[in-house]
Design a protein around this nucleic acid. Structure first.
Length: 571
RNA sequence: CGGGGUGUAGCGCAGCUUGGUAGCGCGCAUCGUUCGGGACGAUGAGGUCGCAGGUUCGAAUCCUGUCACCCCGACCA
């Protein structure tokens, strides 16, 4: 391809609405263009090439693992979503519309329903299982706040795969295979990534793992261990039980006056106890389907903080909302002096696991200015759950090492779904005994367009993109220093042809621009190697520049063609 | 949805306080000079100033409303 003919509108100036390096360089390098709406992008020729390269890696590895590619309708009938019960539940992110006959449709934000529909119509026997089907197609989610270019778009390209099995064990086998396959994909693409345990969110299911590209700009916080390979999204991270040197307070059970002492810190220092022995009671409004809601109390140790996703899951709610003082008071709760022991027994209380069998505790007395000491929870019957947010410095539950925070970009997520969709949608098969059973499913996603942003977040410098060999739009660019020098053009053309014959994707920068601007474009676009045909041609030499690090070396053109791999390490 | 900000040429911006012929840089086109790190000169094309209403002899500028986009938060596979 000749750069003089390729539509690559690079710009010197940074668009004012781009903040992240990936967003800035993808726009400036002429890879993408805003489509005129928030979170909507057009892919220009260079961006499309990168997308295709990334897609190819994904497809190759999935096909190798026995997956089959299909393509599902992007516009899906609302009836399917009503059948699975997600039509209401998915909320405003689901774009709904009607056709001319007033039939309702949605733009697919994910395709569990559609894929299950495909399979239930065509698979009836255990002999046809297992099956792993995937597609690489557009998705649309009407995000509350799209941002950061391709990182969180509303329309985006996603690989979504679904597997169908006769039993749990076979699904787990496939889940493990997909984990390995994803690792291969992300390794080939050149990522520094981590596989972490995750919350399953709206997709549902039990075990789920996320593939996180480590980057400062990541929107997710991860807790990772410095002693082993444990890593988890903060929403799902667990830790070893806390140990404290401070002794259990020796208070007898009593109510004590604590005037004006409301926060955990104030209570702890007033009563001279470690916050570890103070019960923190957090009141939240839990929101359920059909507009139902209730106030829920979460009890945890004073030195812990509530993890909202865990808390939401603990009460099986759609979301939690904070409450203001008036609402608390109206519900008979005393801000600052609240305890989990409410007269009103209909009030739901969930206790954190760390409070099991605790004693010598301090908690509010449910009246202004008083706390209770010597609270004993031993033998108490109550609902316990893991509610705490892991903090930096906590100990790893697996190896006892120290947990640290790091930021990650979620590029992949794999779920063990079970029968969550196959059951309501009647996706059944007949087993060896002729008995009808729901298929056991897994689901596996990769944010393909997001990958482009993630690659640049991890691979760029202050001059532009540095594509990894497997993702680059071209393997190498041959730059003619001065296109008016016939000797240079001739030499570059023959190099270009020779490299193409060897099977490389080569770009020829034959534009009549000056050398400086061609180099700037090379650095901005980030093709892994440039071969400069210029001044040194007089000495019979061309120059090879490696984009990553910008090292240069002089090479004889005939050597370059003969032994390309020696000078240019393509993937 | 709460808080903050911005809409003027393809991109980046000035002009608005104090109403009076629409401006700069980059990019683009033509010609000439230049040619290894975003060159220089000359000439030129390109904008119903987000939209609607109002005030006024006159509105990019003042007033009201509205829409869009961006940032922080909440939210989110």
């Amino acid at each position: 391809m000749r750069l003089s003919r390729l539509l690559v509108p690079t710009t010197k100036e940074t668009p004012n609405d781009a903040v992240l390096p990936s967003h800035i360089y993808l726009l400036r390098g002429g890879f993408i263009q805003n489509a005129g709406g928030s979170g909507l992008y057009n892919f220009l020729p260079l961006g499309k090439r990168v997308l295709d390269r990334v897609r190819k890696v994904i497809k190759e590895e999935l096909d190798k693992a026995g997956c089959q590619e299909v393509s599902l309708s992007f516009v899906t009938p609302a009836a399917l979503w009503q059948e699975s019960g997600r039509y209401e539940k998915y909320g405003k992110e689901l774009l709904r519309f009607k056709d001319r006959k007033e039939n309702e449709f949605v733009l697919g934000p994910t395709h569990e329903e559609m894929m299950v529909n495909l399979v239930r119509q065509s698979v009836k026997s255990y002999k046809q299982l297992p099956l792993n089907l995937y597609q690489i197609n557009l998705k649309f989610r009407d995000e509350i706040r799209p941002r950061f270019g391709l990182m969180r778009g509303r329309e985006f390209l996603m690989k979504d795969g679904y597997s169908f099995h006769t039993d749990e064990a076979d699904m787990k086998r496939e889940f493990a295979l997909m984990e390995e396959t994803y690792k291969k994909i992300f390794t080939r693409l050149g990522f520094d990534f981590r596989v972490v345990e995750a919350d399953s969110g709206a997709i549902g299911g039990t075990g789920s793992k996320e593939f996180m590209v480590l980057a400062e700009s990541g929107e997710d916080t991860l807790a990772v261990c410095d002693g082993c390979d444990y890593g988890a999204n903060i929403e799902a991270a667990v830790r070893a039980p806390k140990i404290t040197d401070t002794p259990v307070p020796a208070y007898e059970a009593a109510e004590v006056e604590t005037p004006g002492v409301a926060t955990i810190e104030e209570v702890a220092s007033f009563l001279k106890v470690d916050p570890h022995y103070v019960i923190k009671t957090v009141a939240m409004r839990a929101l359920y389907n059909e507009g139902k809601s209730e106030i829920v109390l979460f009890a945890l140790r004073g030195d812990d903080t509530l993890q909202e996703v865990k808390a939401t899951n603990a009460v099986d709610a759609n979301a939690l909302e904070e409450l203001d003082e008036e609402t608390l008071k109206a519900a008979g709760l005393v801000p600052g002096y609240m305890s989990p022991f409410q007269e009103d027994k209909s009030l739901r209380v969930v206790w954190d696991n760390a409070l099991k069998e605790a004693y010598g505790m301090v908690c509010g007395a449910d009246k202004e200015g008083y706390h209770r000491v010597g609270v004993d929870l031993r033998g108490m019957e109550a609902t316990f759950a893991d509610l705490i947010e892991v903090q930096e410095g906590d100990r790893c539950a697996r190896c006892g090492g120290t947990l640290h925070y790091t930021k990650g970009i979620e590029v992949g997520h794999i779920f063990q779904l079970g029968t969550r969709y196959s059951e309501p949608l009647g996706c059944n098969f007949l087993d060896e005994n002729g008995k009808s059973k729901p298929m056991v499913m897994g689901t596996y996603g990769i944010g393909v367009s997001r990958l482009l942003a993630a690659i640049i977040e991890q691979h760029h410098d202050d001059r532009g993109c540095i594509w990894t060999p497997a993702s680059a739009p071209f393997d190498v660019v041959v730059i003619v220093s001065n296109a008016k020098e016939e000797s240079q053009t001739e030499a570059a053309e023959s190099l270009y042809d020779a490299l193409k014959k060897k099977g490389y994707d080569v770009l020829l920068d034959d534009r009549k621009d000056r050398f400086g601007s061609k180099m700037k474009d090379f650095e901005l676009i980030g093709i892994p190697y440039a071969i400069i045909v210029g001044k040194k041609l007089g000495e019979g030499l061309v120059e090879v520049v490696k984009r990553d690090g910008l090292e240069r070396s002089d090479v004889l053109p005939e050597d370059l063609i003969k032994e390309t791999e020696r000078y240019v390490c393509f993937s």
